[in-house]
Write a protein that binds this DNA or RNA. Structure first.
Lengths: 277, 277
DNA sequence: TGTTCGATGTCGAGC
DNA sequence: GCTCGACGTCGAACA
């Protein structure tokens, strides 16, 4: 979406120009990919050697280094982040890259006997990675299945403005008492409890009656539980996997697994698929 | 070394042309790298979603698929090998790639809202990956430190021709009896035992005296041990890490860790290093 | 093919 | 900074 600097691509580059270029690219927090024939040595927690072969080297903006062979999930050699990276032309005239980690002390050296391509790209990625459900979906499932919050629970408002913020769910329990519900997609911290408490107090201030407050999350930090008890708030543990299954069942979310083929696809030949035996 | 097909590189390609190209590339067992802005969905053993961001997609020749964000060791999403991969233009006009694994059933979808670059390369990599020491280095360490084989052991010949093959080490024990030593860098199998036995028999046939036979390896398969006992051969377990440490100590192998800087480097400025805080 | 176990595991959370 | 537990762990060795 945001217009990005064009990636810089070099085909069959002169190795002599690369150390400087790569150093600069790393300094500017770009991602560097080098494709070519290399050999690799590693020493640290273990020690390894790998002779010449065609591989993909990736240097990420945090200093992670990955050397990938043409098969398999895992890199054959790597260096996690926080490394010092050097690039130079070695005595055989090859592009050589050294990635050093200090704790534990580990050294990774990659020497390219042939460089096919170099790609330097400025990658920007701020997206959130969510497993199972995001908070909005979580709320949708609970609003659609209020019995999961508590038997007899009835939703009155989805998102209720209270004081400076918005409570996720406002409802009444089976005895007609008002209930404020706060949701967290991940382990609920003390902060989440205080947030809920703020809504409870705001409600009390407005309506002159203290509502119950329930914090719903997949897990709770000890300090969160301690604070909940102290502030006379309640909590309920939910399993995101379960909620997800429910969301799929109720049609709130489509499962990728359902279509072995792509959404909306009609009948087609097999030419579109590529199988790996 | 082997002249390789030039990698095919596309900058700012027309997405419409990509599905066909990618399908063909995968069919020809090339490695495909796509750089651009994408969103990712995964469902299988777990379920995940990742919004738009700049990433590197790598499809390897065995069908492994990796989606890398610009930081960190691990791919944010992936599919191990043995997947069916599809590529097409989705309803938003985006390049969409679906990688399906059947057991366990898992689906990964990557949709590119912007494609910056596509690299298609035929990578050839037959090199052996060795941890700690290869067999030659292992032999060098043991020949230089025969007491590791057995107290009082004395090396007579490094590589002794015997029958159709070559025994790794030939020596005599402290009582003057001939000893044939066979080395394995990895778990010794029954085959390794039979190989040793062949040398022992060849020696006996030539010199009229049965030598002792010792198989040295980091570990032994049960069938190897059974066969060793049955053929009245001996074995000694060695720790490759220990041998490696010894090799470094004795100067048989240089440790990468010793030079915080590159080998043979003179004094230089810091401009050559790129630090990641 | 299914299971168990090791890893340069990596990664995040709690202390 | 360190320990501990989970992971879509992956991957090799073994039954």
């Amino acid at each position: 979406m945001a217009p990005v600097n064009e990636p810089l691509i070099l085909e069959k580059p002169d190795p002599a120009a690369l150390p400087d270029l790569i150093r600069r690219a790393i300094g500017e927090r770009n991602t560097v990919i080098v494709i070519g024939e290399c050999s690799v040595e590693y020493e640290g927690r273990s020690t390894s050697r790998l002779g010449k072969g065609d591989r993909v080297l990736m240097i990420k903006q945090d200093g992670s280094v990955l050397v990938h062979r043409p098969t398999g999930y895992s890199p054959v050699n790597w260096q996690p982040d926080t490394s010092v990276i050097e690039a130079w032309i070695n005595e055989r005239g090859e592009l050589s890259i050294l990635a050093v980690r200090s704790k534990p002390r580990e050294v990774l050296n990659i020497s390219f006997s042939r460089v096919d391509s170099v790609i330097i790209a400025r990658l920007r990625d701020d997206a959130e990675f969510t497993m199972y459900l995001d908070e909005a979906e979580m709320k949708r499932v609970l609003v659609g299945n209020p019995e999961l919050i508590e038997p007899g629970f009835r939703v009155v408002e989805d998102e209720k403005r209270l004081g400076s913020g918005q409570a996720d769910i406002y409802g009444v329990d089976k005895e007609g008492r008002p209930v404020i519900v706060e949701l967290k997609r991940i382990t609920a911290s003390r902060d989440a409890v205080l947030q809920l408490y703020g809504y409870v107090k705001a409600y009390e201030a407005t309506y002159g009656k203290r509502p119950r407050g329930i914090l719903i999350a997949p897990s709770f930090s000890p300090s969160a539980i301690e604070t909940l008890l102290r502030l006379q708030l309640e909590y309920r543990q939910v399993d995101l996997r379960e909620l997800y299954r429910l969301a799929v069942e109720k049609g709130l979310r489509r499962s990728l697994l359902e279509y072995g083929r792509r959404p909306g696809e009609r009948e087609r030949g097999t030419g579109e698929k590529t199988r790996h035996e």
